[in-house]
Design a protein around this nucleic acid. Structure first.
Lengths: 266, 266
DNA sequence: ACCGATGGTGATAATAATGAACCGATTGAC
DNA sequence: GTCAATCGGTTCATTATTATCACCATCGGT
């Protein structure tokens, strides 16, 4: 990793505190939580405001995300239309398997859901797009880590808290790395109720041009109707969708991954 | 304006070079265009990468916008759902008048288009969402400035270059402020081919809770089919849409603005 | 083999960021 | 009504950071 700029990192550290549940901050509290001096935080915020990344409420004096992020997101989607490209395959998958499908992108500490497709049938799993998916406790997280760039894997592992969300959650680094090896061999990840009870996640990585995972696609299934045969059928469909999306992005998944997918179909 | 951090400003300066038409940059060319030393630019880019705002293509070594902007845009829209709230009224407006409708947000030097709705009819104006709209040469810019918070007006005026885009462009500060006074009286702004020939923009401000403009909605019309009667009809529809969107945001437009809108309908 | 690009690195000189103390204004408790 | 605590924001001497240039290895074209 090359050298970077501490001041800029601090600015982004501040940005990371603006979340859906806490979208607006006062100066003092934000500085305290970010571990920065008030004066420093204010100067950083002034730069963020100048760049349009942050706005300040003129009466409450609180800070919130600005409109520049909307602009940049538009540019990014216009140039590399990930969400738009992933939608059709995700919709096909949901229709095919009759379960909720979601697409996630990695962030520092967890995965973020960027797309949810729910099937027509009456009983289905609801996925909250605003809820971060922990790496160690979700099928998507495991599928991503298993095929992630080594430095991203390492970084993500340093943030995993191994908190047990249910009694099935993986709670040690050794168990996690062992599980990742199995996933690499089988191409897809299953989280049997390790995040929420009653749901089973089946996930596969989406690859970028470098051959590493850049995103995930997953089915969120009702545990009550799962069988080994159904799991294989869904896993085959999910890995196939992951291959489709990867190719739509101009990337070719690793040969071993393609092979695993074809083995599932057989 | 409070003190800011030069280093952070430089990082954002780099970010501003990633556009729809030039979404990926090599290190040397970006540094040259940004007026920065290669080494400096690289370190800034490393920080941007660490924050997820920029990605580097592993083979071409080029830099592009990262997924963090998607995440922040999601958070911003979840907390302050401007785009989602503005869409239905904008679509209704486009259908009603049969012209292209666009919604813009102010940035430092110009307006940025965040939403475009094109009508079904064969002949229509195409609005490029990636092109910034100069304050002095577009109906949206004038409508915004006429109802902007005084400090924002002053800031925007300091950035206006008064460059003539066509022979009808306003090219002096005096002409601009005079025009703004007229717009305040009439509630909407018209740019008769002052930005591009053959198109006429009709714009109105969207208000926030403080009673000042926070965004704009505009119709981009073909000049060839414009008549005084049609202008009034469209202006009435546009101002009505601006009122609808303002109320959807929880804001009540000033009484004089409502009155002007009702006068147009009469 | 050469040329002129490219992406990237390292050491020092030049510059910027830092943070404790401070200010005026609110707020809430008594 | 007063006191104490907190708020947003500013100041300036101290300090740590960043900018820059020369340099390297590599690539594609002639």
């Amino acid at each position: 990793m090359g050298k970077s700029m501490g001041t800029v990192d601090k600015a982004f550290h501040l940005l990371s505190f603006f979340t859906v549940s806490e979208p607006a901050w006062g100066l003092s509290e934000l500085a305290r939580r970010a571990g920065q001096d008030k004066a420093t935080a204010l100067r950083l915020l002034n730069s963020l405001i100048a760049g349009g990344f942050v706005e300040q409420d003129p009466v409450a004096r609180t800070f919130r995300l600005g409109t520049a992020v909307l602009k940049l997101a538009r540019i990014r989607e216009a140039s590399f239309p990930f969400v738009a490209l992933a939608r059709p395959p995700a919709e096909r998958l949901s229709e095919q398997i009759g379960e909720t499908v979601h697409v996630c992108l990695p962030e520092r500490e967890a995965l973020a859901t960027v797309q949810v497709v729910e099937p027509q049938r009456a009983t289905r799993v609801h996925v909250d797009p605003s809820q971060p998916l922990p790496y160690h406790a979700t099928a998507s997280g495991l599928a991503f880590l298993a095929f992630a760039r080594p430095d991203l894997l390492e970084s993500a592992l340093s943030y995993v808290d191994f908190r047990a969300h249910t009694e099935h959650t993986i709670t040690s680094k050794e168990a996690l790395t062992g599980q990742l090896a199995k996933i690499r061999a089988g191409a897809y990840a299953v989280s049997g109720s390790s995040f929420e009870l009653e749901t089973i996640g089946i996930a596969a990585p989406i690859f970028d041009a470098s051959g590493f995972a850049t995103a995930t696609v997953a089915a969120a299934c009702l545990a009550s109707r799962m069988t080994p045969e159904l799991e294989t059928r869904i896993a085959s469909a999910v890995t196939g969708t992951a291959i489709d999306i990867s190719r739509a992005l101009g990337a070719e998944p690793p040969a071993v991954f393609i092979q695993s997918h074809m083995d599932l179909a057989a």
